[in-house]
């Protein structure tokens, strides 16, 4: 009884946080089924305009090709980023020397400058490489970020060094230790890294807009930006587009969240 009561504040806080989190999403979902006029009047009950909104969306905008481009770019970015930054983070921590620590600190400076300031030199760089309008120009700058490296480095700190030593005594090569021993135990970290990289890549707007000048590889955030550009915005259609654009990141989280729940203790022993 008392134990239950003690849990009550926790449940209340969780319930409050969950409700507050979900409510605006409910509003968004309901709006996707309403007419533009109803959305503006903050109607909170589902309407019957979903199919009409969908109809206008697919006839006015290249929805499916945008979904496809966003998917290819976000998935490629995520896989590449997780592979190269996890090795780097492991390298920084497990083999850490003063020089490597300094390099890490130096690399961190790279994210501390607003993108608006470096965008034009970056554009010039890719233009010189002949990569304007290439999806690779969107993927490459995003596959290595100091934060991801730092995430893996920070997470590696709690990885027991004794295990590495033991593996070395067993005669395992360094890369094999990383792959066979470290990798499986760090699943929650990999899941977190994948979720955030995917989300960042999926919602990335400014750089893709600038480098993908022709609409050949138009992504979803660019589509959303175009919907709002006219004299008359169809808010029902906009909310539906937003809903569709939000779904994949949610799905990725649903898939990967099992990894967050897995303890590592079992894996180590």
């Amino acid at each position: 009884m008392t134990r239950r009561l003690r849990r009550l504040p926790g449940y209340l806080f969780l319930g409050f946080a969950a409700l507050a989190s979900v409510f605006p999403l409910y509003y968004m979902a309901v709006s996707a089924t309403n007419t533009s006029q109803d959305v503006l009047a903050s109607r909170l009950i589902p309407g019957s305009n979903l199919m009409a909104n969908f109809e206008s969306l697919v006839t006015q905008q290249p929805l499916w090709s945008s979904v496809w481009h966003s998917t290819v770019i976000a998935v490629s970015t995520t896989v590449l980023a997780v592979v190269i930054t996890s090795i780097a983070g492991y390298g920084f921590e497990v083999y850490h020397t003063r020089a490597k620590d300094r390099l890490m600190g130096f690399l961190l400076l790279a994210v501390m400058i607003p993108f608006a300031a470096t965008m034009i030199p970056l554009f010039r760089l890719f233009a010189d490489l002949g990569m304007v309008n290439s999806p690779l120009a969107v993927i490459l700058p995003a596959i290595s970020t100091p934060f991801l490296i730092l995430l893996f480095r920070q997470a590696s700190r709690s990885f027991p060094r004794e295990i590495i030593e033991a593996a070395r005594l067993d005669g395992l090569k360094e890369l094999a230790i990383f792959a066979r021993i470290y990798l499986p135990t760090m699943r929650p970290t990999f899941a977190a890294a994948a979720v955030i990289t995917f989300m960042t890549a999926w919602n990335n707007f400014l750089w893709p807009k600038v480098i993908l000048i022709s609409n050949e590889y138009q992504t979803l955030p660019i589509l959303l930006s175009n919907i709002r550009a006219g004299y008359v915005t169809d808010y029902g259609m906009l909310m539906l587009a937003v809903l569709i654009a939000s779904l994949p990141a949610m799905v990725i989280f649903l898939i990967l969240q099992r990894s967050f729940a897995e303890g590592i203790t079992g894996a180590i022993k």
């Binding site: 290819v72 592979v83 309008n133 290439s134 999806p135 690779l136 792959a179 990798l183 050949e216």
Partner: peptide, 30 residues
């Protein structure tokens, strides 16, 4: 696991390269 990871990585690289290859050919027209 590594093997799977790296094949996946390689596959993605190929995919990205293919995508940009067809981009350069079609954006040649563009």
């Amino acid at each position: 696991t590594t093997f799977r990871k790296f094949t996946a990585g390689a596959a993605v690289l190929t995919l990205a390269a293919a995508l940009s290859a067809c981009s350069s050919s079609s954006s040649g027209g563009g």
